[in-house]
Design a protein around this nucleic acid. Structure first.
Lengths: 276, 276
DNA sequence: TTGCTCCTCACGTCACGTGAGGTGGC
DNA sequence: TTGCTCCTCACGTCACGTGAGGTGGC
């Protein structure tokens, strides 16, 4: 760890293409400490040996990695942890890229004009017994949470010796859309039976009956707001809406096929019990 | 433009998957005004007819379009201007995506360990006459500016009846790296001759002589900080650096080939005149 | 009357950028 | 001595999120 040559912050800036302001910020945040700090003038001096670290920081910032994570990556004791954190970040970025592509496609579709909208059907859903997982989740985490929760449900299904009685569904409280965070419930209807109590985070619950307006969403979940808009509009214009959680039923989902175009989701909006 | 049904902010949030906080913010920013505002309570009411606009906003925000631009897009009088602005944004995003991919590749290369570094050569560059364009530019705008300036230079070359005497180069003041903004000079050496004065923003200048350390960067410009780091390190460790603008000479660049891997750029770092 | 929804400030977040105002070294 | 580089606050930016504290409608 020999010091090879000390550099002013200006020289170091030129060598790394990091702005002086950014370097000072990285110092303040503990991401990249100068090799020497003059106790009288406060002048920072960097070492030529710090150039590679600065280049890594620049790349990670280009990839939008937060400074806290960069500090953790650079401070990781062994190389495995380090590359593991980087790979985790890259896969998060890949997911984000897919979302971007979906947004571009969705935008084109929107601007091309309103698509033919599937019909709205009013339906009475009876109460059912179901295995369920309930957690407080943010909108950003919801897809991953859902997949994980579904894994727990299928595991509990077999270990409790129960039989599925329909496709999985979820309950979304109003709060979830209004604040992008709320307590979600993923459930899997089962044939009622005397069974051993489900273990862990899976519980047996009664999904209440409901009168709902239903519209089927075809395709990837990124576009599902279009169906919400069309369904909500239909409900509002008929003035039949009531309070209560929105439901989704996953007729065909990622657990059935990787081709998102084949996915089918029923969106259910609560309406008056009196609606014919 | 008939009002079809009024919605509370909560209902509108559920229908568009925009958070209530976001909707209030869009109102404050003039991006999406509620159809009705109760003068006593301040309650906002939206119209079902506003759902499509909200969906477009959501897509554009997913694409990181700033609210100012979104307001402009939605307010655009004709569809041509609107789709033009969107296309411009998409191409900016595409450029950003390329940068992301370059950052991933660059990161892999950095973590794989230091590459074999090309040799540093100390060279005396004589003064030359050149056509030049000079502008104050930010680091983010520099590549586009450079391409545009080169176009002006070649146009001026033929209209002034001059002959090129070398490949194009650029001068970068220290300030440009330290603040990511500064006055850049792109120049094209010419055979001195009595010629008509160049027009517009192109001027005839004397590029001063300089003693420099030179390293050749092979490949895309996104990676050029690695060469700056290696060159700056070499200069610092020999303690031969002096003040002065850094130069780049574009031996093979985007004007010669679209294959970035073939690009070759000489980076020139000012050193003592006495260096042998 | 009790929840629930809605409202308006005021402040926080994140990674710096933008001055202001001042000092040190050649 | 004059520039130039460096320093430290303090505040701004952008698109909201996070409470605090309060009101209206069923």
């Amino acid at each position: 760890m020999m010091i090879m040559a000390l550099l002013t912050i200006g020289d170091f800036s030129r060598m790394t293409h990091l702005s002086v302001k950014a370097l000072r910020h990285y110092h303040d945040m503990g991401v990249l400490e100068p090799a020497v700090i003059d106790p009288f003038t406060g002048y920072r001096s960097y070492d030529t040996g710090q150039v590679p670290a600065a280049q890594v920081i620049r790349r990670l910032r280009d990839l939008n990695m937060p400074l806290d994570q960069i500090r953790a990556v650079l401070g990781a004791p062994d190389v495995d942890v380090r590359s593991q954190e980087i790979m985790a970040h890259l896969s998060r970025m890949e997911r984000q890229l897919q979302q971007t592509q979906a947004a571009v496609a969705g935008l084109r579709a929107l601007l091309a004009g309103p698509a033919a909208r599937p019909a709205v059907e009013v339906r009475a859903i009876p109460a059912v017994t179901a295995l369920a997982v309930r957690d407080t989740v943010t909108a950003a985490d919801a897809p991953v949470w859902g997949l994980d929760a579904f894994g727990s449900l299928t595991a509990a299904l077999s270990s409790a010796g129960l039989t599925a009685a329909g496709c999985p569904g979820a309950l979304f409280p109003s709060e979830f859309f209004e604040t992008e965070r709320g307590e979600l419930t993923l459930f899997l209807p089962v044939v009622p039976a005397v069974a051993s109590a489900p273990a862990g985070r899976v519980q047996l619950m009664e999904v209440p009956a409901a009168e709902v307006a239903v519209m089927t969403h075809e395709g990837a979940a990124d576009d599902i707001d279009r169906t919400y808009g069309a369904l909500g509009t239909a409900v509002a214009e008929r003035a039949i809406g009531v309070d209560g959680p929105i439901r989704e039923y996953y007729l065909v989902s990622v657990v059935d096929t990787d081709d998102e175009r084949e996915h089918r989701t029923e969106v259910c909006w609560p309406v008056f019990r009196t609606a014919a």
